[in-house]
């Protein structure tokens, strides 16, 4: 083993130089990925007088918060709506997913193998195929136009992905452990509480982050199911961008405000966010 490394090391050093050239395409791509972020931030910090489409790429002359203030005034109530919708949706989703994942992975019943694929199909359906019944149904049960209605919808359509994530996680809990508990007379709830729940924290983080992000970023359900004053921020932002009255610089500042919560989640908890993406591997 040591001899191989020794034999290879001069070759390594030789390639060492050349490999650095590969950083050039990576840096070019970095610029590509950062351009929209740059435009959002730079435009936001320009003063109203400075803003012109023809100088869009220039750095701001000073440091003005006018755009952010104007955008915040417009979006504040909707940012609040988003938060009030997303937090309960993410928490409830994670609890539902945990219970389902536990049963399907480690407390099976005859026929339980069929349940997961049947649930998973719900993850991929284009929501256009259920939109009309959904709108009618929500109206009939009196939840159309409200934030609780939107929470319910996110929880239900979140069942597949949250169940799948917990399922994958709980499959790593040794089966023998559960069998032993069963033989010792532990019931279903006992096994869940004493074996599964205590080790679930990472899966809860993954699922809560995932649901937080997807509910925050949702537009379709929100635009169908909520009225003006209950709009979450995505709908309000789209509406602001569609209007001729609100200047593009304010739209840019507004976009940034709407992106901040999920960006913060990504920056501080990105590791888990990535794990949520990959745990699904299926999710789109």
């Amino acid at each position: 083993m040591t001899s191989t490394t020794a034999a290879r090391s001069p070759k390594r050093r030789f390639r060492f130089q050349g490999r650095y050239l590969l950083l050039i395409p990576l840096l070019l791509m970095t610029i590509f990925y950062l351009l929209p972020l740059y435009i959002m931030l730079v435009t936001g910090f320009k003063s109203f007088a400075e803003v012109s489409l023809q100088t869009m790429w220039n750095l701001p002359g000073g440091f003005s918060l006018e755009n952010y203030i104007a955008a915040f005034e417009k979006l504040a109530p909707h940012l609040k709506n988003s938060l009030m919708m997303v937090i309960p949706a993410a928490i409830i989703s994670s609890m539902v997913g945990s219970v389902n994942g536990f049963v399907l992975a480690r407390w099976r019943f005859p026929g339980s193998n069929l349940v997961l694929p049947l649930l998973l199909f719900g993850m991929f359906i284009p929501y256009q195929s259920i939109l009309i019944p959904l709108a009618v149904f929500m109206k009939n049960i009196g939840l159309a136009g409200s934030i609780p209605g939107l929470i319910l919808v996110h929880v239900i359509y979140g069942i597949p992905i949250t169940t799948l994530t917990f399922y994958g996680y709980y499959m790593t809990v040794p089966k023998e452990l559960v069998e032993a508990a069963r033989i010792d007379g532990a019931g279903m709830f006992g096994a869940y509480r004493h074996i599964f729940l205590p080790v679930s924290a990472p899966a809860f983080v993954v699922v809560i982050i995932w649901q937080f992000t997807s509910a925050w970023n949702d537009f379709l359900f929100a635009v169908i199911l909520t009225g003006n004053e209950n709009w979450p921020v995505t709908v309000a932002l789209q509406n602001m961008a569609g209007s001729q009255i609100i200047a593009w610089n304010v739209q840019m500042a507004g976009s940034f405000l709407a992106a901040v919560p999920t960006l913060l989640v990504y920056i501080f908890l990105g590791r888990y966010f990535l794990r949520g993406l990959m745990a699904g591997a299926l999710k789109g």
Partner: peptide
Amino acid sequence: LFPMAISFIVTGVV
């Protein structure tokens, strides 16, 4: 990967 965390609406407006 960071664009994944942003909504299509924000991406679209920018």
